[in-house]
Amino acid sequence: MLDVGLYHYLILAVALFSIGLYGVLASRNAIRVLMSLELMLNAVNINLVAFNNYLHLHDLSGQVFSIFILTVSAAEASVGLAVLIALFRRTHSADMEQYSILQG
């Protein structure tokens, strides 16, 4: 049981993903929501690298996939922060509760 195997990494990734999901759903600060999103993406990265290491070693495709996820998450963070700053200039707040412009 104490031997570390694939399942330990998968369970670790589930825990990290769950914490990130809670942060996305329950946080009021928009920047904290962005940080939690990055946590979720990192949990997926751990899954990919773990599967690659334990089940798919005739090729390093899993590591290449997580490099792509790294790229996408960097793009997502920059655009997300730009949207946040545009919203901040409009509402003068980083509180998610103030972003109800679309309610009509």
Partner: peptide
């Protein structure tokens, strides 16, 4: 998990880059 390149990329992109971006935010 035998991914030293990814570990280095993680430190550079997330650990340094993204944290600084978030602190700017």
């Amino acid at each position: 998990l035998n991914a030293p390149f990814l570990a280095a990329a993680q430190i550079m992109v997330y650990g340094v880059g993204l944290t600084i971006v978030m602190i700017f935010g």
